[in-house]
Amino acid sequence: MSNAALKVASSTSLSRSDCEDFLIHEARLLDEAHFDDWLALFTPEARYWVPSEPNQKSPLDTVSLMYDDRRLLETRVRRLSSPKIYSQEPRSRTSRIVTNATIESTDNGVTKVRSKFVMVEYRREEQRLFAGTYLHDLVVIDSAIRIAFKKIDLVNCDAPMDGLVVPF
């Protein structure tokens, strides 16, 4: 595994290339199913959100394909490693491309990064294609980059869909 993105950040000010390295590292952890390591990237009060509607304003008043506070995210990740997660027998294989990263703003130590992704998921003779926009709120804690908030806007978020088990 590449440790490039785990290198100690020298300050709270993140460059675009710091952010890109981090996003690539995160995508690799997910593709290689290192879900515990992925969870470790999140802050203790992190939230993870996949809206069910385009331009959805809140995860609290409208349903979401996934909306996890830190407690539920831990449960989601723990389930992924259960031998009894039948929806992952056989396991999905995924391949992601993350690109077009831009820093949208930097305020109070929070760097908002917007990027585009494409994810291919293969499971049981079926291949699915997902695409959309990632929005990361990145912070630096103890010299390491951490995710305080991650939002995934899928281009087809309101389409009829088969079950979603692997995180985006």
Binding site: D69, R70, R71, T75, R78, R79, S82, I85
Partner: peptide
């Protein structure tokens, strides 16, 4: 639902929740 039952039973309630995870778990 064994995988989600086990994962929820093992979850610490001390971890941050905005209310969403609490209901789900």
């Amino acid at each position: 639902h064994r995988s989600s039952i086990d994962a929820a039973q093992q979850q610490s309630d001390d971890v941050y929740s905005d209310g969403t995870g609490e209901i789900a778990i």
